[in-house]
Write a protein that binds this DNA or RNA. Sequence first.
DNA 1: GTCTATAAATCGATAGAC
DNA 2: GTCTATCGATTTATAGAC
Lengths: 189, 189
Amino acid sequence: MAKDTKTALLDSAERAARTRGFDGFSYADLAQEVGIRKASIHHHFPTKAALSAAIMKRYTQAFAKACQSIDAECATGGARLAALIDRYRAALEGGQSLCLCVSFSTSRNSLPAEVISEIVGFRQMMLAWIAATYHLGGSDRSIAMVHDPAQEAAATLAMLEGAQLRARAEEDPAHFDNALGLLRSRLAR
Amino acid sequence: MAKDTKTALLDSAERAARTRGFDGFSYADLAQEVGIRKASIHHHFPTKAALSAAIMKRYTQAFAKACQSIDAECATGGARLAALIDRYRAALEGGQSLCLCVSFSTSRNSLPAEVISEIVGFRQMMLAWIAATYHLGGSDRSIAMVHDPAQEAAATLAMLEGAQLRARAEEDPAHFDNALGLLRSRLAR
DNA sequence: GTCTATAAATCGATAGAC
DNA sequence: GTCTATCGATTTATAGAC
């Protein structure tokens, strides 16, 4: 079945935002990719603010679901954290893309308030999940040297996001692996 | 003595780029802040590409100098790394600003080639300095548990840059301190 | 070195026909 | 739901007077 226009617009907008940033994509870009006129986009999303809020909201939900899938498929904390790292690496799309939350964070002044609170919520969700994963990994001994799960979570999320920045800037995911090597070596397999 | 116009433009452009991103500032913004007409900016910097390359080049030189100052003032690896962390925190300007390298990295497709290679050079310089600092800190026992300085450097730079992202997005430097807490606790004082 | 004036393109958004 | 047509603002950049 063919994608409906609204979903096609969300997909195109997410890809554009993650590749070029909030101030780097326009309705004209989406119109060309989806194959409709740019005026028609306003029927589905009245403003760019509304569209941006919609893709950030959808992105958070998809990521929460992905974390649930990891929990279902991986038993140990170490395996779960390794799976999360892999997902952040996959989000790079070969060095052409970023996590939407990372991409939006450098454009704070351009963002509507809705998007900012979505970004805050996204990170809160991620930090809670990572902290729980460290707690498990400390208990089941699948992550080495866990002292404070909350502190580890804050450090890990920063590292994941920061590692994406260099990999994106140099269009080379190897830089992501480079930054995450030390953490990965703490995980049992 | 009053700042010359060219320097005033560089200062204004750097501040704008670090606050709003490459695609988020315009010649009109700089003109208003510096107090000249926007056409006059082209006399000093013919294109936005040239202006951006100039601020990135100056930023790299200033940061290299700052690292030299740290080396001169701090004897141990731990003290040097702590000073670098403090500098990344100060660059936040209370949550209103980012490292220029961080800000530019999400706008790769809009950047002229000159700026991209400057960004690559900036990170290479930082990684070399951080790795050397870890090496020293391992030797003088002022940084705990140092195994591979190069890997530590890659992880640390990612963490510094990533920690800025959240602090900027939420306009609160406390989030930066949160992410860096674990690393800071490894440093002797 | 700074100005006025202007160009050509693009931005997000709206009105109204179909 | 998509279209054509258009609006007003803004973008980077240039020409030429002073």
